[in-house]
Design a protein around this nucleic acid. Structure first.
Length: 423
RNA sequence: GGUGGGAUGGCCGAGCGGUUUAAGGCAGCGGUCUUGAAAACCGCCAGGGGCGCAAGUCCCUCGUGAGUUCGAAUCUCACUCCCACCGCCA
């Protein structure tokens, strides 16, 4: 969330930023409550000060065996008045928090202003689209031919949007996870963590999925417990340090985690129904950074490069796009997407999203640090990026590696795992 | 799932209705001493909020939420979490 003081002092900037992101922001409602809260707090504090002083006087008199009934009555009356004010505050504060939690992070000034996907800014590309001397097939046909993905079994066991990797498909999945984790931990300095796949509402709030993403039915909720299946490892991993005050020497923190991700994709029915472009459960290796505020935009660039390194090692052509204001996520200040080329589908697919959340998640999750042992705690900046999402990486491997005879040439780093060059 | 024990500041730990503005210790930071270090000694060491240009001042927080009381870390109730044992279990 945003700093309440910042909203109070810059209401117009908040309205503008939210509008650029095509998001609502009840700034007026929030500030009206804020004004009332401060007025009541001032009054209540004065009364409490008086009550504390009088109570102390009661104690003094009673110890001196004097009568204190008149004072007791005055304090009782004060108590009644204080209680009314505190009750009003108890009603206002959750409302303020709720409004604040629903105001999105503001886009960084460098973010291109735009209305749609068409306004995203091309940053760079790597490699080139491969040439085929035959018509490249979409991955679902390749996978069916090889018998490595079973859609019917996924639908039978769970339902539409759930798939089963089978045989070499399952093994390829596992090899990719290992490959990505090893790359990030041994070459890029990330600490591997393996977090829970279910999280509580505090964690969902900390990274910004609650309330809005949850309310729009994006997340799976566990019946009977107040727990959610994680939509991304960003949630458990960023929340690892929730409500902590870190020491300056601990920063920056780099975490890499493999987890499955669960998304209801409630609003996306009908899109990408064929293949594995959009499924309800998918695997992802996620990178999370917790850094000093002044470093976050430089850290975003290296995070992006760390994610790109995976595609480079796999020899897959991709492009990097900077999201325009309207295409960014709720909690982001700046976001790059990496899009890999899928020749069978004839389009680029988002395999990674790398974002700087500035202090927005840190403030929600209470992640702070001290520059010096006695310095005032400051909020850290958090970042995360996929490194990478598995299904679309698999799509790119299948569609880019396909050969005329129906086999698929494996990227070089995966050949050792399989002991051969093709699937 | 059952039974019992516990939750106090970075850590340990007093405290059981009013000089607690939370003792004391450890760790940390600053200083004295020392060639330097250690030891010893002195000092500083939670977070949030209101008002104020500031200096400052006041309020809140002893797991969370209610309650009793003039006054609650301290008493009552509920809940949460942690630990131990039992049951079940990969």
């Amino acid at each position: 969330m945003l700093d309440l003081k910042f909203v109070r002092e810059n209401p117009e900037a908040v309205r503008r930023g939210a509008a650029l992101k095509k998001q609502e922001a009840d700034v007026d409602g929030l500030l009206a409550l804020d004004a009332e809260r401060r007025q009541i707090t001032t009054r209540a504090d004065e009364l409490k000060q008086e009550r504390n002083a009088l109570s102390e006087e009661v104690g003094r008199r009673l110890r001196a065996k004097e009568n204190a009934d008149d004072l007791k009555q005055r304090v009782r009356n004060l108590g009644d008045e204080i209680k009314k004010l505190d009750e009003r505050l108890a009603a206002i504060e959750p409302q303020m928090r709720d409004r604040l939690l629903r105001i999105p992070n503001l886009p960084h000034e460098s973010v291109p202003v735009g209305e749609s996907e068409a306004d995203n800014r091309f940053v760079r590309e790597w490699g080139a689209k491969p040439n085929f001397d035959f018509e490249p097939k979409p991955h679902w046909e390749i996978a069916e031919h090889l018998g490595i993905i079973n859609f019917e079994q996924g639908a039978k066991v769970t339902g539409s949007g759930f798939i089963v990797y089978s045989g070499a498909g399952a093994r390829l999945q596992r090899a990719l996870i290992n490959f990505m984790l090893d790359l990030h931990t041994t070459r890029h300095g990330y600490r591997e963590v393996y977090p829970p796949f279910l999280v509580n509402v505090e964690s969902m709030t900390g990274t910004g999925q609650y309330p809005k993403f949850v309310e729009t039915d994006g997340a799976y909720k566990v019946e009977g417990d107040e727990l959610y299946l994680i939509p991304t490892a960003e949630v458990p991993v960023t929340n690892l340090r929730r409500d902590e005050i870190l020491g300056d020497p601990e920063l920056p923190l780099y975490y890499a985690a493999y987890t499955p991700c669960f998304r209801r994709e409630a609003g996306a029915a009908g899109r990408d129904t064929r293949g594995i472009t959009r499924v309800h459960q998918f695997d992802k290796v996620e990178l999370v950074k917790i850094v000093r505020p002044e470093d976050s935009y430089a850290e975003l660039e290296t995070l992006l490069q760390n994610a790109e390194a995976v595609l480079q090692a796999l020899g897959l052509h991709y492009r990097v796009m900077e999201m325009c204001t309207a295409e960014m996520g709720f909690s982001n200040a700046k976001q790059y997407d990496i899009e890999v080329w899928a020749p069978g589908m004839g389009r680029y697919l988002e395999v990674s999203s790398c974002s700087n959340f500035t202090d927005y998640q840190a403030r929600r999750a209470g992640i702070r640090f001290r520059r010096e042992p006695k310095a005032k705690p400051e909020f850290v900046h958090t970042l995360n990026g996929s490194g990478l999402a598995l299904p679309r990486t698999m799509i790119a491997i299948l569609e880019n590696g396909q050969q005329a005879d129906g086999s698929v040439r494996l990227p070089e780093p995966l050949q050792a795992v399989f002991g051969r060059e093709t699937l």
